[in-house]
Amino acid sequence: MASLLFYLLAATALLATLLCITRRSPVHAVIFLINAFFALALMFYLLGAPLIAAWEVIVYAGAIMVLFLFVIMTLELSPESQRPALSRRQWAPALLLFLLLLISAGLILTFDPAGQAGVPFFYASPRSFGAALFNRYGLAVEIVSFQLLFAAAGAYYLGRRRKARQPEESS
């Protein structure tokens, strides 16, 4: 049952991602990406990580994609102004990347015996996940959150300065 669900979800995620990068309309692309995130979240749940699954939906599908959609909707006001098809110059790097991915996946599967074994089932309740995260990796979590704070403050500063300069120039 679980493995059947897994294959269904994996197929959904792959298909949705494929459709996401091939759609002409950016809004449709975003919707397929949301679908992919959903499938991923359910896979996390199947793997025994309900907390990660919930965050995947809340943060990626629920917040970041809403921002994407917001920006796209404000940019693409007319339905005619849609992205042109992929040009030939874009195909080469895409194929190269795909080849690299295939080769690395093949290498991992053939040479690393650990890669062939399935991930052992491990159920992480929110409580034990939090305890492990903050007891064992507390310092790292704090450092990462500080970095995020710096990034947020930096972005704010960059956005702020240009706004403040404009009235000076005009006056």
């Binding site: 309900p50 907390l51 919930a54 965050w55 939906v57 629920g62 929110p126």
Partner: peptide, 18 residues
């Protein structure tokens, strides 16, 4: 009775905007 019940509610309420 999900053990992440409140987060489930949040996930759905953030999807409601779609």
């Amino acid at each position: 009775d999900l053990n992440v019940g409140i987060l489930y509610f949040f996930g759905l309420s953030s999807l409601a905007v779609y």
